[in-house]
């Protein structure tokens, strides 16, 4: 099972690497305020997950 998982994840890394490299090259630059617009909802998701973990 461990070997199978390792082969699967290793294969995924190999397959995804060229795509990831392309995405890194082609991504447009962030404009002012773009990162705030991303970080605020992500922080809310983190808070929500923590809430769920406390409720369970």
């Amino acid at each position: 099972m461990k070997i199978g998982s390792a082969i699967l994840i290793g294969g995924m890394i190999l397959l995804l690497f060229p795509n990831a490299k392309r995405m890194m090259k082609e991504s447009p630059e962030a404009e002012k305020g773009d990162w705030e617009g991303f970080l605020v909802p992500i922080a809310l998701v983190a808070a929500f997950v923590l809430l769920l973990m406390n409720l369970i």
Partner: peptide, 19 residues
Amino acid sequence: RNFNFMGGFLATGFLVVLA
């Protein structure tokens, strides 16, 4: 909002998580 700028960041992050 346009989140297309995050492509490279997310792809790198996903590769790191896989590793």
